[in-house]
Every structure is written in structure tokens, then in C-alpha cells.
Nucleic acid binder design. Structure first.
Lengths: 178, 178
DNA sequence: CTTGGAATGTCAACATGGCTGACATAAACT
DNA sequence: AGTTTATGTCAGCCATGTTGACATTCCAAG
């Protein structure tokens, strides 16, 4: 990309010449750095929970489900699969193991009996806390390293990177939580 | 986590009381927001290339391989799997399809005949450019939205989030590239 | 009230891409 | 030369994504 990137140079700047404001910081090289930073950072981001999960033959999919069920107790399968961005069939397998392992409880809806409302059991909450603690520790260290200003920018760029519906989901969760 | 997070409150602040500096910004709630931001943003980050790849029955693994081969032409299988953080067997399957599809060329090493040096063919470069363009467009838009200050912070936090060896790899690539 | 379609969730079968194990070849070190 | 180490390939397993078929429930039209 740096040298072999065919038309890499052609999109090298988002504005030619002086362009008025500070748009000349968007070189392809800097964008590529951001791409690689996302890739490497995401590995670190998931590394600690992954290690814990591997010990109990669970995977990232289980972590995600547990996280968001804890986040919004009583959520339905349908809600959850929208948030997670997978098919209901894929989610269902993960939920099945979590339910049969006694980490998640599935309650038939009262107003609508087609729905299943999901809750963590005590064991489920314990695992959630363990996973979250590990992930938060890494995040806390990174935040501390980078400083509050950087954290603001970090979140701002990530938000801008989301698809519109995910940004909506993210904001909704944020408002619900805090 | 917000309410059921067992010991969530106990780690709610990284420093009690006034503590001297601005360390009180690290509440669990804010850390959780960062975690969810990473999750949702990563989906957006991979969404555009994923769509392109799906059309040609490739996956994210192919994209990653192509990206880093383009980034460091002539790299060996061993180098590549260190960067990618997967096993050689896993990488091998992806490389096999890319080679047989004529996107990647594998040349036996001259000084060490055990090694295979990897290069993109013209077709490989074309696909790389197509994928990169899509991903850079998203990144460019996010950068523009968030502004240069935010981008600085974004990279700073991501770097702090990486494992030490990945940070080294990242920095090396960065220096090589620019 | 009944009936037909839409919504929700479950089960089955398949594909991708992780993984470990076994192995071939080349290099390196006694 | 002979053992050990490094590199890469092949085979098979598992987690988790996918689509398709289906049961249950709800709702709206007749």
C-alpha cells in the first residue's frame, strides 16, 4: 500500500493544495496507520477475556451475549441479535449452551408469549464480572496511559466509525447505563 | 454491569476522594462505554471490506493476509503469522487459496530454502486496493467528523491498548511505511 | 370466529477459519 | 554424520458464522 498501492497516491489527500482548513492531515499513510492500530488494538482488547473463556471452552460469542444480557436484563432474543449483529440461529446455539450450563435464564414473555426474556443467573453474573474486570483493567490502564484528552478523542473517532444503527444502539445503551 | 456488576462499584474510581490529579474520570461506567464503543466501531471498521469479500467467497482472514503482504512485500510465512497472531496452519489454508487463485505468489527463499517469500500479483494488488479504498473511505470520514485533535487521542489510546509485542510490530510497520 | 400472514424462536445442515497433531524438508549445531 | 531446530504443508477437529425448514404465537381482514 505504501508503495505498491496502485492508486494509493491518487487519494493521498482529501483536498488538494491548501484547501482552506486543516484537511491536509488525511494522508493515506495516516489512514493506514489508523487501520492497523484498530487491528492490533482489537487483539489486545479481546485478549484477556479470551484467555479466561478458553479455560472453560467458551468463546467470544458467549462473552458478547453475557455482556449485553447483563447490560439490559430482560432483553429478548430479538433485541440481542440486533445488537450483536448475528443471525438468530447463530445466537441461539450460544444461548442454548449458556442456558443449559445455568448461566442464563430464559423466561417466556407475559404480554407476548413468543418472546423469551433473558437474565443472568448468579453464576452468570459471576462470570460476567470476571470477564469485565479483566477487560476493564486493560482499558483502565490504556486510558491512564493516554490521558483524559486522548480518551475523548478515542470515543469520538470510534463513534464516527460506527454504522448509523449501531451508533443509535450505542447511544441508547449509554443513556440507559449512566 | 451497571447495576448487577457485583464488585463493579468497588473499582468504580481509580482514586478515592480528590486524589490530586484528574484520575476521577475512570469510572466503571465510562470504561464500559469504551468497551462497547470498541465493539460497535470494529463492526463498522470491517463492514465495507467484508461486503466486498463476501461477493468473492473470501473472508476477513484473506483481507488481513493481503493487507500485510502488500505492506511488506517479500515477507515470509513466519513473519506474517506473527503479525496476524494465528497459527501457521490456519494461515496456510488462506495462503493456499490466494496462491491458487493467482493473487499471491510464493517464492522459495534464496539464502534459506525453507522460507517462502510472499508477494502480491497484479490481481492481488488490485483486490488489495479495492479493499483498502473501501476501508480508508470509512476511516477518512470518521477522521473528518472527529477532527485532528480527536485522531491524536484515538491513536494514543489504541496504542496503549495493544499487547507489547503488537505495539512493537505496529511501530515497526509505521516506521517502515512512512 | 376463523383464517392467513407476520413475528419470534428452535432445530438441522453447511462453510469459514480458528486450533492441534503428524510430517517433510532444510539448516544448524554438536 | 547425526541429532536438534526451524519452516512450511497436509489432515482433521471445533467454534461460530450462514441459510433453510419449521413450530408457536400474535394480529388483522373477512
Amino acid at each position: 500500500m505504501a508503495e505498491g498501492g496502485s492508486n494509493g497516491r491518487s487519494t493521498g489527500r482529501s483536498s488538494q493544495g491548501f484547501g482552506g482548513e486543516s484537511l491536509l492531515f488525511l494522508t493515506d499513510e495516516q489512514l493506514r496507520q489508523g487501520i492497523e492500530a484498530m487491528f492490533f488494538a482489537y487483539r489486545g482488547f479481546t485478549a484477556d477475556p479470551d484467555r479466561i473463556l478458553a479455560e472453560m471452552s467458551y468463546g467470544r460469542a458467549h462473552h458478547r451475549a453475557i455482556h449485553f444480557i447483563n447490560r439490559a436484563p430482560g432483553t429478548t432474543v430479538n433485541n440481542l441479535l440486533t445488537i450483536l449483529g448475528v443471525t438468530k440461529q447463530s445466537l441461539n446455539r450460544v444461548l442454548r449452551t449458556l442456558i443449559s450450563d445455568g448461566l442464563v435464564e430464559s423466561r417466556v414473555g407475559v404480554s407476548d408469549k413468543r418472546e423469551r426474556h433473558l437474565h443472568l443467573t448468579e453464576n452468570g453474573k459471576a462470570l460476567e464480572a470476571k470477564l469485565s474486570d479483566a477487560q476493564r483493567a486493560r482499558m483502565r490502564a490504556a486510558y491512564k496511559d493516554a490521558g483524559p484528552e486522548a480518551v475523548q478523542g478515542f470515543k469520538k473517532v470510534l463513534e464516527a466509525m460506527m454504522d448509523a444503527d449501531m451508533r443509535r444502539a450505542y447511544v441508547t445503551l449509554r443513556e440507559t447505563g449512566s
